[in-house]
């Protein structure tokens, strides 16, 4: 039996090794909501669903399943903060639960390191836990700044592809083209989710495109940023560290590479959802990792979040 109120937290690569404030903020916010996120000791890369799966599907499946067995040993369902990890782990789990041959193949390899897949846990994205397990109403009730002092910022929501698709093995129903659960979660904090052109489009980072063809990958992002700016947004909310990186570091890169193809340099603050939620629950910017380490150079956030924090400050005072 999987116990309630505890999840195995799958970190992946980009969060712990590049964007650690997402890890810090998510742990604290979930703790505040009464959920403990237990570390998965010894977990590896998920491995990334477009990259490593593109090189060798069986290896991808074996390594992903090894990660699943760590959570099985913890005996808690998996919570991921990354759409890519979510895609890999969810799809690996789905394949092994529905295909005995594959399960036998993977377990043959895992037996060499004294592991075996049992199929005893579920894989969830933290957004699924917030929206489906905790629920919108409960979150709204906990939000401190929602009634009088509204956060009330204009937000561009970016879902990311692997959170939604393939919809057949996702928990959101068949509508992968115009879902609204993340908009609802953002609006639960008092902010306004602004509609923008091609809102559900890919950020361009995944599928091994960023690593091999950075300029092409950033051209996806340039288009999205142009549409976001045209809609007059004050911040971008992400739920995936790779999308987050693509929008954060990506703006710096786009401002250089596409200098001649953009009206003006981009500088839209990029915030991970749990950071925004934490603020709405009454936590301070430091607790949710919204203060930049000024001692270190070449570390995120690359786009200043000061304007975002200033606006938040003004909203809450006014």
């Amino acid at each position: 039996m999987v116990q309630d109120k505890k999840y195995s937290l799958f970190l992946g690569c980009v969060i712990p090794n590049r964007y650690p404030f997402i890890e810090a903020a998510t742990k604290k916010v979930f703790q505040k909501l009464g959920i403990t996120l237990v570390d998965m000791e010894g977990a590896s890369c998920c491995p990334a669903p477009g990259v490593f799966r593109g090189f060798d599907i069986d290896t991808w499946l074996i390594i992903a399943t090894r990660n699943l067995t760590i959570a099985e040993n913890n005996n808690y369902d998996i919570a991921t903060m990354c759409n890519g990890c979510y895609g890999s782990l969810l799809e690996a789990d789905h394949q092994l639960k529905s295909d005995v041959e594959k399960r036998n193949m993977v377990n043959y390899h895992l037996s060499k390191v004294n592991r075996s897949y049992k199929g005893s846990i579920k894989v969830k994205h933290i957004i699924e836990i917030l929206y489906k397990d905790i629920g919108l109403d409960k979150i709204k009730n906990r939000v401190k700044y929602g009634r009088k002092n509204k956060l009330d910022l204009r937000i561009a929501v970016h879902y990311g592809c692997h959170l939604l698709k393939p919809s057949e093995i996702r928990p959101w129903g068949k509508d992968s083209e115009t879902p609204h659960f993340l908009d609802d979660l953002v609006e639960a904090t008092g902010c306004k989710s602004i509609n923008y052109l091609d809102k559900y489009r890919c950020c361009g980072a995944a599928g091994a495109v960023r690593s091999a063809f950075k300029e092409i990958s950033l051209d996806f992002t340039r288009e999205k940023l142009t549409n976001m700016r045209a809609a007059g947004v004050e911040a971008i909310i992400t739920v995936c560290p790779f999308c987050h990186l693509q929008f954060d570091l990506g703006q710096i890169e786009i401002n250089k590479i596409f200098k001649d193809r953009i009206d003006a340099p981009f500088n839209i603050p990029v915030i991970y959802y749990t950071q925004l939620l934490g603020l709405a629950l009454g936590m301070n910017p430091e607790e949710v990792g919204l203060i930049k380490d000024k001692e270190l150079s070449g570390v995120p956030p690359f786009i200043s979040i000061e304007p975002f924090l200033t606006k938040i400050g003004e909203k809450l005072e006014g």
């Binding site: 970190l11 650690p20 977990a43 570390v299």
Partner: peptide
Amino acid sequence: HGVPIDDKKWKELREFYGLKKVPPT
């Protein structure tokens, strides 16, 4: 890791946000 800790600044950054220098991976 596909994206490993390959510079000490990443450990320091983790520490800045109150996390263990090296992740439990």
